[in-house]
């Protein structure tokens, strides 16, 4: 555990809690892509199956349980409790275009051809692109609520901090995991355009809106 890893995890946690609080306080999930939230729930579920097979640490177990719990709570909010506010007409990204190639790739490029390992690999690849329905939705409506941009910022920052964590671990522990690193790079790159808008607009007090 190093400072990048810890701040990465906390940034991830912050993103998840910001989203839940936003929906709860405003009683609305307008502007949130339910499809991205489904993909994140699939990511956590397929990656953290090792909760049932191995114990790593209290920290590890609690974070996994919190992430999974929050992911399903978010889904409950979007598709049940606040369903009337869900903007499904704008949430039109075709997730099969992500699930099929990601599923195929996880069978082809993995560390070990075993069910748990393939599911872990699948979750790593899927996470790297799971935000695309949300970004697509924003590009379609041309705007995002400021609180939604804070959510996206922390979600993007988390994997960027993990990249520094992996650099740290390579130098000080000789550890590296090529699958996680490449997927983490892809994931971070997808946020770059958003980071630019966040810094140049949202942090200067302006709403995030895209030119028509």
């Amino acid at each position: 555990m190093n400072v990048f890893r810890l701040t990465g995890d906390l940034s991830h946690l912050a993103a998840i809690i910001i989203l839940l609080l936003k929906i709860w306080k405003t009683r609305s999930c307008a502007g949130i892509s339910g499809k991205s939230q489904i993909l994140f729930a699939v990511v956590f579920t397929s990656r953290y199956l090792d909760l049932l097979t191995s114990f790593i640490s209290l920290y590890n177990t609690s974070m996994k349980v919190i992430y999974i719990g929050c992911a399903y709570a978010t889904l409950y909010f979007v598709y049940m409790k606040f369903k009337a506010t869900y903007d499904g007409n704008h949430d039109t990204f075709r997730v099969e275009f992500l699930l099929v190639p990601v599923g195929g790739l996880s069978f082809l490029v993995n560390h070990d051809f075993s069910p748990l390992e393939i599911l872990w690999t699948f979750s790593i690849y899927l996470e790297s692109v799971a935000i695309l329905p949300q970004l697509f939705m924003i590009s379609k409506t041309g705007e995002a609520e400021t609180i939604t941009t804070h959510y996206l910022f922390f979600l993007g920052l988390y994997r960027a901090l993990y990249l520094f964590n992996w650099i740290w671990r390579f130098y000080f522990e000789g550890f590296f995991d090529m699958i996680a690193i490449v997927a983490g790079l892809v994931q971070t790159i997808l946020y770059c355009d958003f980071f630019y808008l966040y810094i140049t607009k949202v942090l200067k007090g302006k709403k995030l809106s895209l030119p028509a």
Partner: peptide
């Protein structure tokens, strides 16, 4: 050995 594989990260 896969049992040694690092799955500590989230």
């Amino acid at each position: 050995d896969l049992d040694e594989m690092d799955k500590d990260e989230l």
